[in-house]
Simulated scan of single mutants.
Amino acid sequence: MSETPPEPVNKILRVTSAAFAVVFALFVASALTLPTARAATSLGLVSEGTTGLQVLQTLLQFGWFLVAIVGYLAISDQRNLVRIARPTPRDAALIFVGGLGLFAFQYGALVVLGELGLTTGQNQAVVPDGNPVTYYALMVAVSLLVVGPVEEALFRGVVQGGLRRAFNAVPSILMASAMFGLVHLVAVSGTPGERWAYVAVAVVLGAVLGLLYEHTDNVLVPGLAHGMYNAVIYVELLRQSL
């Protein structure tokens, strides 16, 4: 039986392991998404510069994220790290309130930043390559069923769950949220100030999702709340484009 390392060493190992999990997932997705998307276009499944290709790339990206998550859990022998259960009626209420609450917070943050003469950068995921109506409509479902759950499996399940084995709830949530916010920096366009403002908002959103995971011990709750939050954004963009 392996012994638990001393507490300071265990904390360093947990932070390092969490950071590695994020880098590993990003590496796998970035290395494999484009080649598999190109294979799909070469087979005639989708065409270049179309909405179908853009949505497919999103699905492939998060599909590879999921493969990386499963691989990390298998390699590190931590298959029970990501807690998943069928949502209860109470969980469903938390998902609904959490999703709308996240959207309300973001809207309020944008208003406050606007009053200060500031704004956030733009996430490239909301910029359609083709028909915006079709893209936004498809992304409602993709966000709810794929993007939110997979991101939360990584940041709340793997990262926060791993940190929770060495830290109390608050530092675990804050560190996982910081990693969650920083990852979005590469996907946001704008001035440095606008990009970091986006990261700051994402960190707070991540902390709320972390609280949901800590409270329910079920990654589907923050996953679906996150997906609902993203879906509401796309619904609003769809409304504006009609």
Rank of each mutant, 00 (worst) to 15 (best):
M1P: 00
Y198G: 03
Y107T: 12
V126M: 14
A29D: 13
L66Y: 15
L224I: 12
I233L: 14
N218K: 07
V15L: 14
D129H: 13
A141H: 05
V46C: 13
G49Y: 12
L209G: 09
F62E: 07
H184W: 09
R90M: 11
A19T: 02
L81R: 14
L205F: 03
S241Y: 10
R83W: 04
E3C: 00
H226Y: 07
G148H: 08
G108A: 15
F62S: 05
S172N: 00
L118H: 11
Y135C: 06
A40P: 07
A187E: 12
T134S: 08
I233M: 15
N80Y: 06
L163I: 00
V46T: 15
G157H: 00
G63M: 14
V142Y: 09
P128E: 08
I12D: 10
V112G: 01
P128I: 04
E7Y: 03
P222H: 09
A178P: 02
R90D: 05
V140P: 01
E214N: 10
I69H: 04
S241N: 13
A202R: 09
G130N: 11
V235R: 04
V126H: 04
G130D: 11
Y213K: 06
Q122I: 14
T119I: 01
G101N: 04
L205P: 00
R90F: 11
H226P: 01
V219R: 03
V159S: 02
P5Y: 12
G117T: 07
V170W: 11
G130I: 11
A40V: 08
A153K: 02
A37C: 12
I75C: 05
V188H: 10
G44A: 14
Y72C: 03
T88H: 10
P8E: 06
Q61T: 15
L73C: 09
L145F: 13
L66E: 15
P128T: 07
A29C: 10
R38S: 07
K11D: 02
Y136A: 06
G117F: 01
V22H: 01
L32N: 05
P149C: 06
R239V: 13
V208S: 03
L56S: 14
F96H: 03
A197T: 04
Y136S: 07
S189L: 09
R86A: 10
A231M: 07
A178C: 04
G108Q: 04
L238V: 09
V170G: 02
L13Y: 11
A19L: 14
P5W: 14
M1A: 10
N131H: 08
Y107H: 02
P132C: 12
T16F: 12
V147C: 04
A109L: 00
